[in-house]
Nucleic acid binder design. Structure first.
Lengths: 226, 226
DNA sequence: AAGTGGTCTAGACCACGCA
DNA sequence: GCGTGGTCTAGACCACTTC
């Protein structure tokens, strides 16, 4: 009884054994289906999964090749900060440091495509068991917020957004930087300490939603399997 | 003509419109297939994709729910360093700083499950247009290497491995750290500069392959979309 | 026990992208 | 043009999980 996971395993085994070396063209779906005694759809499922993880490269008409210079893919989870803290078994806390309505710096407005418009600016400190965990700098499109605004001292903007604006697209970037004066002060560090920074930009289909910069306390690691 | 992507779009639209609010149970596959006039397999494909990206949560018997506290997923590419440099339009260079056979520190041997065994230790500097790009510290299982060893002054260990050992599993972690003395020297920085660090551990099905730490020059950003 | 999603089949048509 | 992978169908059986 061969399922698609068995087919995938067998294909992987042949690649590892170099029966199908890097760059090689492997047999078509029809041929493999016959060889393994399964339907073509089952082979397709197995090969599609391997293509998604970067092991194979598939193109119509050209066929399926073993990736010569594989770009492996890993999946990252992007949780809400409260969930991340609670998953570590720590108590989550939130402190709103600043709330203002003003024009964002050019770096933010250009990135979101919102020129010369006032936005909501939040600075929030997230705590894990009372200790600083992340300091968040966020710019929000006022059009996505109700009037009056949610109480961001009670619920983080992140959490409010996923519950009320729901399901956006965006991009995310990670870097290492020296902590600025304000960031260091919020996290209780000395200025210039190496900190892990996450920057996210999100859009609804019709309008920009938010730009956010998260500065993590030292020791933070982002990890996953592949 | 409704394909699975159309179904996915329609489901997303209903979630955004809050016809199906966060946490809600949505109709079963059979019901949706009838409503949209497609086969159940088509609905299944659409809902499965949404579950893979964290928008829906599916369990047999329990049904399909809109994620209440969504953990969005992003896919990261893990390219070979040479490809990464060349993708930026820069010339790739490689300098082998050190090659020795010795026992790894406990942090590495424990991580790989290779107690008290000698491993190959490499320190390599990767260059982009002649400038330091990444300094790499790598421990290799000797059993995966041929005798004599490949010339790691000519081909990076990473590149040799993907071409000859091929398709492993592993884990990857990112962090921000102050550059150590040796790392700073290799990259031409002052000690303590904030650097972006990648640590990877990889295994073949039967044995450990390698542990590697990549210290990136300042300004490095890891980014993706979601 | 029963309902739900997960998978498989056999067949079909289609879209893409090489030649 | 034409071969390959991508998708769809209608039906079936199965696995998991809640009841």
């Amino acid at each position: 009884m061969a399922g698609w996971e068995d087919i995938r395993a067998e294909v992987m085994a042949r690649i590892r054994a170099r029966a199908w070396p890097p760059g090689a063209l492997i047999p078509g779906e029809e041929a493999l289906a016959q060889e393994f005694g399964v339907a073509r759809a089952t082979v397709n499922r197995a090969l599609s999964e391997l293509a998604r993880t970067g092991v194979l490269e598939r193109r119509r008409k050209a066929g399926t090749r073993v990736a010569a210079m594989p770009v492996r893919k890993a999946t990252l989870d992007i949780p809400v900060i409260r969930a991340e803290v609670e998953a570590r078994g720590e108590a989550y806390g939130l402190r709103l440091l600043r709330l203002e309505i003003t024009r964002p710096p050019l770096s933010v407005s250009a990135r979101l495509g919102m020129d010369s418009v006032q936005m909501v600016h939040l600075r929030t400190l997230h705590l894990a068991s009372g200790r600083p965990f992340v300091v968040e700098d966020r710019w929000l499109n006022r059009k996505v917020l109700p009037d009056p605004m949610p109480d961001f001292a009670e619920i983080s903007a992140n959490e409010w957004l996923v519950a009320h604006v729901a399901f956006t697209t965006g991009d995310i970037a990670f870097s290492a930087e020296p902590a600025s004066g304000a960031e260091a002060e919020a996290l209780g560090l000395t200025e210039g300490t190496a900190v892990f920074v996450t920057e996210r930009c999100t859009w609804a289909p019709d309008q920009p939603i938010t730009w956010v910069r998260l500065v993590h306390a030292p020791g933070y690691r982002l990890s996953t399997v592949f």
